[in-house]
């Protein structure tokens, strides 16, 4: 599984390298370039930063400094099941920070990070637009309202079981083919 992701990533990086040529080699293009690379790879791994630095004739350090300034750039791959915990005003008042902490503890990662198996990532967002359901968490595309600390474990477990089931089905299908 890991090998296929790595190979896939290398191919995407090659792709991004080709797209680089469409940008003029100016420092002012750094942010559009980083946006393009992140669009391709979904995050900015260090080989990508090195590639951009080389293209623009900057040091990798310089590129890293600019990229880390902006919230929109991420340096960890997003999980297959991104979990967003709302910390907008209503959710915050209703204890959204406790929900976030529960996810962090359950998945053993910090906010903004991804689990080593790339299954989950946790991030905080400011309002998803349904404050009446506060506190809210969004797992993938599914919204979970009225979150409680006790619901966190069940939610993670359910997603893990669904993934296992899907994998099993895919296995059976490829075996029967």
């Amino acid at each position: 599984m890991k090998e296929t992701t790595d190979a896939n990533e290398a191919a995407l990086l090659q792709d991004a390298r080709k797209r680089l040529e469409t940008f003029a080699k100016e420092r002012g293009n750094l942010i559009p370039i980083l946006q393009m690379v992140q669009e391709k790879l979904a995050y900015l791994p260090s080989p990508a930063l090195a590639m951009v630095a080389e293209y623009l004739g900057m040091t990798a350090s310089d590129v890293y400094g600019v990229a880390t300034f902006y919230n929109q750039f991420r340096f960890q791959p997003p999980g297959r099941n991104p979990i967003k915990v709302c910390l907008g005003t209503a959710c915050y008042v209703k204890g959204g920070d406790i929900i976030l902490e529960n996810f962090e503890r359950k998945l053993k990662i910090r906010e903004g990070d991804t689990t080593p198996d790339r299954e989950f990532s946790v991030e905080r967002v400011a309002c998803v637009g349904c404050c009446a359901l506060a506190p809210v968490a969004v797992a993938g595309e599914t919204l979970h309202g009225h979150m409680q600390p006790s619901k966190v474990e069940g939610l993670v477990l359910r997603i893990r079981m669904e993934t296992q089931k899907k994998e099993k089905e895919a296995d059976e299908k490829s075996n029967s083919d």
Binding site: M58, T59, S61, D62, Y64, G65, T68, F69
Partner: peptide, 10 residues
Amino acid sequence: GQSQITFAKR
């Protein structure tokens, strides 16, 4: 000529 050290984050 170029900096190998930088401010990171914000």
